[in-house]
């Protein structure tokens, strides 16, 4: 009796959960479906079954030179992440393993720089980029994206490094390990999962950034976020082609995102929720 009712409630919850999930996913699903339609099909009323043509994907690549913004997105996301890691790993390491009485204040201050609204520094950054010739260059934007994500990177790494038990270090020292041995054979293997998670989340954040990429690029260095935003005007892409461009812009990050759910919670809440 009790088992039958719990089975029935499980069926009920399952149906409700799937309805919610499919509703929330529907805009993405419908975009994928539309990207596989012809332009004619795309505007001829609601239909969930496309003709599975890839012509829109081809058209976007040939007519709109899609690979340029795609390459820019990869370079900016990966480049800014690597730069941030180079600066953040030593800092987070030092704060986790040799904390001083100021460490907590420094971390809080770093977090506070993230609170600064981007638009508040639009004027100076725009003027600096104009006057130094950084406007519409990959290098300028890579540095920008590195700076805006640096606090999150330091914080995430710090919370991961802090979980590495200090006793292991002591044990290694007792056994006569040098600082080099300590770093190479003890800490690095334990730190790699945390670094990988941080990297993943930061690539996602940099890929999806859409304020500075739109402000500081025109054509040369424009990544996908700026490229897609330029189709807001009516003379932009047609339905199927816009869908194809959208699918290509979000697919890599969507797949990466599915693998990083846990890290997402941790990274975006600065370790406040684990």
């Amino acid at each position: 009796m009790a088992r039958a009712s719990s089975r029935r409630s499980r069926i009920g919850y399952t149906i409700a959960a799937w309805v919610v999930a499919l509703t929330l996913f529907f805009p993405i699903l419908y975009t994928i479906i539309t990207s596989l339609k012809t332009e004619q099909e795309a505007i001829s009323g609601f239909s969930l079954i496309p003709s599975f043509t890839l012509s829109s994907f081809e058209a976007v690549q040939t007519q709109n030179n899609y690979w340029r913004p795609f390459t820019n997105s990869v370079i900016l996301a990966v480049g800014s992440t690597i730069l941030a890691l180079i600066v953040a790993i030593p800092a987070a390491w030092a704060m986790a393993f040799s904390p001083t009485k100021h460490t907590k204040n420094i971390l809080m201050w770093m977090l506070s720089t993230k609170m600064m609204p981007a638009v508040a520094v639009l004027v100076p950054i725009y003027l600096i980029f104009l006057r130094t010739g950084l406007m519409d260059t990959r290098i300028g934007l890579t540095v920008m994206l590195m700076l805006i994500n640096l606090p999150i990177v330091v914080w995430m790494l710090y919370t991961y490094f802090r979980e590495i038990p200090g006793e292991i270090l002591e044990a290694a020292r007792m056994d006569g390990a040098s600082l080099k041995d300590e770093i190479l054979y003890v800490l690095t293997p334990m730190a790699i999962p945390g670094i990988a998670s941080t990297m993943l989340l930061n690539v996602i954040l940099a890929w999806n950034e859409a304020f500075w990429t739109i402000q500081l690029t025109t054509t040369n260095a424009a990544p996908l976020s700026a490229f897609i935003a330029s189709f807001s005007s009516p003379q932009g892409l047609f339905w199927a082609k816009l869908s194809a461009a959208s699918v290509m812009a979000i697919a890599p990050i969507l797949i990466m995102g599915w693998f990083s759910q846990k890290q997402l919670v941790r990274g975006l809440t600065f370790g406040a929720v684990k």
Partner: peptide
């Protein structure tokens, strides 16, 4: 999934 869709898209 919607969280990973960039704002312009």
């Amino acid at each position: 999934s919607p969280f990973f869709v960039m704002p312009p898209v």
